[in-house]
Design a binder for these strands. Structure first.
Lengths: 180, 180
DNA sequence: CCTTGCTATGCAACCAGTTGCATAGCAGGA
DNA sequence: TCCTGCTATGCAACTGGTTGCATAGCAAGG
């Protein structure tokens, strides 16, 4: 399980409320880990009980108050020990691949629209990533290397490489489907 | 949920027992969908109750008897209707990306060995895929196009593209980590 | 004969993640 | 004033997946 650890990393990058975390999980963190707000609130509560994070009531004007969480020493230690233990290379779940192989027993050409839809989703995501890269990681070499920035950037480059690979592969899939 | 559908596809490609399915999920199907034997047996039982698959006792010599499953009409229909309904582009879960961003707050250089381990796992898988491709999909253009074969092949090409992308990205990650 | 190891099937408990719903503060527009 | 919509937090029920364990047939080797 890594949701706890994903939350710790996100809170180390910047403290925030459950709501804010949920929004981050829709964008930057969400590139490689998804979570709904319900799940985040539940886990956050458990982490608070375990002393991994500390909450602070923050009154706001113009909107409801929020509970801002930040990482406590125990949380930092928990993250550190997780970082030092090996994890299994992740197991994959590609519904679309199941569909593609299944299409052989149904209607290969009928899958074209679905694959095109996925292709569009991936080009959109790629455009989104590239815009984020241009915005947050301009090419100007600004001073000394910053680990946090550089590592965020390399993860984003991974997302970009993934989307490019997927688009190329989906083109391959479309060409194959259209032969039937 | 697509485990049921992955099983249907696998059984359409070739009928088999729960045990055999579990083995396939360790190799070809496992490239894009993982499942343990416990899960497969449980789902298979439900599918049998729902009339999606039919079981047949097959006595064997030299080893215990097995129950061979094959797809029933209801199962074929269920697969077909699933193929025709749109699915969400899958959400990602990359523990390693969490670790990489987390390393900024711990010990970037200490992650090198872990990333190298993952890189090795991906080169192994790539070699395995390429060997499978050479074995099962020789370049000889043997007659008329066969949808089942071609679609299996394009899914395998997706696995190959994925592994190549990952290896290149992990090299990028290693170069980045080594700067700290 | 006994152990090891592979084939083959399965139960039970648990845990992570999803879905549906509920509540409440506050702003802005119809 | 009422409705819509965004911020903000949360509970409850369910489902899919994981982990641990159990059983049994049969072969091969020590």
């Amino acid at each position: 399980m890594a949701l706890e650890h994903a939350i710790l990393v996100s809170l180390l990058e910047k403290p925030g409320s459950g709501y804010e975390l949920a929004r981050r999980f829709e964008r930057s963190i969400g590139y490689f880990w998804t979570a709904t707000h319900q799940q985040i609130y539940r886990v956050l509560k458990r982490m608070e009980n375990d002393g991994w994070v500390a909450a602070r009531e923050v009154p706001q004007q113009g909107r409801p108050d929020k509970k801002e969480y930040s990482v406590a020493d125990l949380g930092h230690a928990a993250l550190s020990s997780w970082l030092h233990e090996p994890i299994e290379p992740e197991s994959v779940r590609h519904d679309l691949a199941v569909k593609i192989r299944g299409a052989a027993f149904d209607d290969p050409a009928g899958l074209v629209r679905e694959v095109e839809r996925h292709r569009r989703a991936h080009t959109d995501r790629l455009a989104h990533y590239l815009a984020g890269e241009e915005r947050d990681f301009p090419p100007a070499p600004g001073g000394p290397p910053d680990a946090e920035r550089e590592l965020q950037h390399v993860v984003l480059r991974g997302g970009i490489a993934y989307e490019r690979m997927m688009i190329a592969w989906l083109d391959d899939v479309l060409a194959t489907l259209r032969r039937f």
